[in-house]
Design a protein around this nucleic acid. Sequence first.
RNA 1: GUGGUUGUAGCUCAGCUGGUUAGAGCGCUGGAUUGUGGUUCCAGAGGUCGCCGGUUCGAACCCGGUCUUCCACCCCA
Length: 458
Amino acid sequence: MAQKPSIPKGTRDFTPSEVVKRNYIFDVVKRHFQTFGFQPIETPSFENSETLMGKYGDEGDRLIFKILNSGDFLNKVNDELYSLKDSNKITSSISEKALRYDLTVPFARYVVMHQNELDFPFKRYQIQPVWRADRPQKGRFREFYQCDADVVGSDSLLQEVELIQLYDTVFTELKLDGVTIKLNNRKILAGIAEVIGAKDLLIDFTVALDKLDKIGEDGVKKEMLSKGISEFAIEKAAPLFNLKGSNTDQLDALDALLENSKEGKKGVDELRFIMETIVSLGMQSAKLVIDVTLARGLNYYTGAIFEVAAPKGVSMGSIGGGGRYDDLTGIFGLKDVSGVGISFGLDRIYLVLEELNLFPEAIDRSLEVLCLNFGTKEGLAALKLTTVLRKHGIKADIYPSEAKLNKQFKYANNRNVPYVILLGEEELNNSSFVVKNMQNGEQKTYSLSDTQQFIDSL
RNA sequence: GUGGUUGUAGCUCAGCUGGUUAGAGCGCUGGAUUGUGGUUCCAGAGGUCGCCGGUUCGAACCCGGUCUUCCACCCCA
């Protein structure tokens, strides 16, 4: 019985046109990763579970795809554990491997394992798929690509500055105008939590704060209260909810708010340095704004936090993000290696470019010239001509069988071929070929002994 | 993981309170046109109505389950 074919939830097939467009984005991103001095690495699609588990919080652990052990794995579980039917506890006994959830943690593992071969600061880029057992939504898949650039082994803030320039360069090249790079600093958030006396609830505080533009001031306060943050503390943090004005105005306000927090002050200073340096360097097309409510991202960030928002009017979550993490390699035994990195969300950038119609024209043109087939003898001559064109790097093909011209032309039309070559009995007799321009219908005759004339006209 | 939503021809979608043989546009195939596509005209093919079960004399339509789509939450690229 034939079964109806299907693919798992949250995964996709890509058509030729989609692959070409995705490659276009990959190529731009990759090219600029390289011009900024990053080197490529790749890591396995699955890692040992202990490498990944516990690095992304409880929520993250739930979203990691676990790989079942091979063999009779259930038989190896001890009876007591089995009878408890506790999925979380039994997982580690039946699964030792898991699909990678992002590229940053595997990179940290890579740096630790290869520390003696690397020259620090080590700048690496990595473009590979990652998997999350999430519930799919628009722009949210269970298999998707991340394009990451990270620097480890340097705590210079110039790295942050360069990464912002890298974002700006890539989005400018993609013609994606009006992208906003949001910038915040974990130290500021920690400082605020300290100042208002909610140091232990930093994560809950930031997660709630992050929702400000979504659920509003009242919604944020409500959530903070429900997480156990006191009314007094929330009132103290109130200036945050209305932080407006220019970047420098906001920095000054933060300075005042954080005057009793050493860590918070440091965060403001870092932010100020990055902002001022970027201002003096200038940006090509992106906007850089401070957003103290920006808190998303993973728990391992310790300094700068980036998030890239699509141009206004496009409904899409963030199309990139990143930040500085001072001790990611520490969990694998390598201390005092600071890292900072950014990620491009390829799948979402694709959706945005598609929506705004920003892919180059004719990008998915897979064929420039199609030779029609008029029979055995004529077909052979056409194939010779096709071979010459191909040697000149022209995407050329010959229709494989002597079908009706109507059908051959229709095929050329559907494949969007700009030039069709007719080489029939008459042309063969006088060593010529006819080129039809499919846009305007004009036909020109060229000599078979001077194909260069046609090639030059392209 | 929680709540909701969607699924009918290759594609986009109609289909009345449950009632004979489930429709349209586009696309596809053939013809008008034996060497000229994208326009036009004519004809034709194509559907286990997501899947499984239930209610009913009778189910695309009602009910349950399941898969899928999209949305909100959680979280995130």
